[in-house]
Structures are given as structure tokens and as C-alpha cells.
Design a protein around this nucleic acid. Structure first.
Length: 212
DNA sequence: TGCCAGGCCGGGT
DNA sequence: ACCCGGCATGGC
């Protein structure tokens, strides 16, 4: 079985086990973007608290984040950790959105995928995974997200080397799978769920569906 | 109680 | 081009 077939087999197994996960949990594309920044190296549970505070203050919008004072924003997102840095990251994204896209996400996502990705990567606080999460889950663009779970699972199954770069792993998925937003969406969600439920609590993976 | 969570940046080799 | 410390809360 070559690596492409292996990737498809893993998808089938996980999809059968978990079913449709309909990611990313959110009420709006903007909420996805905020979540993508807040969840950097942070448990999602804590991000939910932060987002719910932003909602209850009525500032979960580009204009809301633009206008709120840094100190107040930091206080609201405190549960997500790294609150000072993440305040700056949210603000720098908002500055980009206003300066380059007239403050409008529809304008932003009207750009060509890879061109927009390049621009997002220039925003301080947005790296590859965050950019790709924004593109796929907020913008419905066909790009595959690589995260720590994905790497661990693929390493464990000898599909990638430990020193594979982000681009190596991403192109592996994107050259072997059909280009499909729903597929990329569901596959990444499946990998994260697998990591959460089987790798963390059961590092030996005895009960992981990929081993049974 | 210490370690980790859906990373990224900046300074040092 | 890598490598590493810093960033911070909440759960187990």
C-alpha cells in the first residue's frame, strides 16, 4: 500500500468510527478566525470561555475588536492564556483586514487562495497552521491543515519522517487526495479527534481505531 | 503537582 | 537554516 492509499484508508477508518464532525464549531467566519488565533497552543475549552466573553460584550466583530481598548480585550480573552500576545495578534489581523480588505471578510476571501495565504503569513501572529485554519474553516478554501496531532499520527504510522516540514506534510495530503473542501474539513477534524481521544489518554493506542 | 493543550515570534548559533 | 526560551490559563 503506497502512502496515498494509506492516507485514504486512514480517512475511511476514522470517518467510519467518528462520523460527520461538522467542524469548525462557530456562528460566523469571523468567530472562526478569532478562535484560530486564540487556540494557538491552547486547549479549546479555554478558548470557548474567551469567545463567549467576547460575545457577551458584543464585540465579536471586526469593528468590535478594532475599537476595544487593548487592556479590556486582554481581560476578556484571559481564559485563553497568552492574553497579552493574543491581544496583539487579534489587533494585527484586524489592522490587516481594514488596511488591505476594507474591513470586510468577503473582500478578503475574494482573493486567490495562495496569494491570500502569503498575505496572511505576513501578519504578525499568523503562522502556517493559523493561516490554513482561517482559509479552510472560515473561507471554505481547499487547503489542508497540518497540526501537531496530524504529525504525531502520521509519524506513528511511518508515513512521514520526524523532520518533515509543514509544506512536506501538507503537499503529501494535497497531492494524494482529491481537492475537496468538505474532505479536507472532515479529515483534519478526524485527526484532531483521534489525537484527543486516543493519543493523549492512551499513548500506546491500544484502542485507537487505526490499530484495530 | 507538574505537564500539557488544535503555535508563533525573536534572538542566538 | 535550525534551535530555544518566552508567552499564561485551566484540567487532569
Amino acid at each position: 500500500m503506497n502512502r496515498g492509499q494509506h492516507l485514504l484508508a486512514i480517512y475511511e477508518t476514522l470517518n467510519e468510527h467518528f462520523g460527520d464532525l461538522h467542524w469548525w464549531p462557530s456562528d460566523s467566519p469571523f468567530e472562526v478566525i478569532v478562535g484560530a488565533i486564540l487556540t494557538q497552543n491552547t486547549a479549546w475549552r479555554n478558548v470557548e470561555r474567551a469567545i463567549s466573553q467576547l460575545k457577551s460584550e458584543g464585540i465579536l466583530s471586526p469593528e468590535g475588536i478594532l475599537k476595544i481598548d487593548d487592556r479590556m480585550l486582554a481581560d476578556l480573552i484571559r481564559p485563553a492564556g497568552y492574553y497579552n500576545i493574543k491581544t496583539q495578534r487579534l489587533k494585527s489581523f484586524i489592522r490587516f483586514l481594514y488596511e488591505e480588505c476594507n474591513g470586510d471578510l468577503d473582500n478578503m476571501f475574494a482573493e486567490d487562495l495562495w496569494h491570500l495565504r502569503g498575505k496572511l503569513l505576513k501578519v504578525k501572529g499568523i503562522g502556517e497552521e493559523t493561516a490554513d485554519s482561517i482559509l479552510l474553516y472560515a473561507g471554505n478554501k481547499p487547503i489542508f491543515i497540518i497540526d501537531a496531532y496530524t504529525r504525531r499520527i502520521l509519524q506513528r504510522h511511518d508515513i512521514i519522517q520526524r523532520d518533515a516540514t509543514y509544506e512536506d506534510v501538507q503537499s503529501l495530503f494535497m497531492t494524494h487526495l482529491p481537492e475537496s473542501v468538505p474532505l479536507y474539513n472532515q479529515y483534519h477534524a478526524l485527526l484532531v479527534n483521534t489525537g484527543k481521544f486516543f493519543c493523549n489518554s492512551n499513548p500506546r493506542c491500544d484502542v485507537c481505531p487505526l490499530y484495530t
